[in-house]
Amino acid sequence: MKGPKEIFANPRLCTACKTCEIACAVEHSKTKSLYSALAERPQPKRRLYVEPAKTGLNIPILCRHCEDAPCMHACITGAISKTQAGVVITDQDRCIGCWTCVMVCPFGVIGRHLETQKAYRCDRCPDREVPACVSACPTKALIYKEAEDFSRDRRVVVATEMFTKE
């Protein structure tokens, strides 16, 4: 049985337009529409971050929903757990905003909501068929696939490249 679909990023296709960041914030707003989300308070927050890797190369970075999530073990109040669907979530009632998870996350993708004093991260858009960022990416740099399929696609590309290089 395949694992859950995950969000992968191809830095070669990323133009750093940041449409994904906006789509994420809009999806996590109350009204879920750009124009009305602008007026909401507290302001909606994006869960993924487009960062420069080096000149000309950018990459959207977001929660990997690690199998053995360091944040989950490090959380001093037991607020972080992994759902059946494989998504790591922070229980907003239990979170006390100590930010230990922020500190141990090797990817730096846990956000601090300074108004509510809670930690938040990518939730893989449970209300959508396809996460908002993936749908929004104009260059298809974000991919929503099971890890097995993603690896297989990569293998196919590699195999073809190996063959045509002759």
């Binding site: 989950m72 073990h73 959380c75 109040t77 037991g78 607020a79 972080i80 757990s81 992994k82 229980d91 239990r94």
Partner: peptide
Amino acid sequence: QAIGMLGSGPYK
């Protein structure tokens, strides 16, 4: 109850 370990976080 609200601060128990077993049943929450990694020990869910």
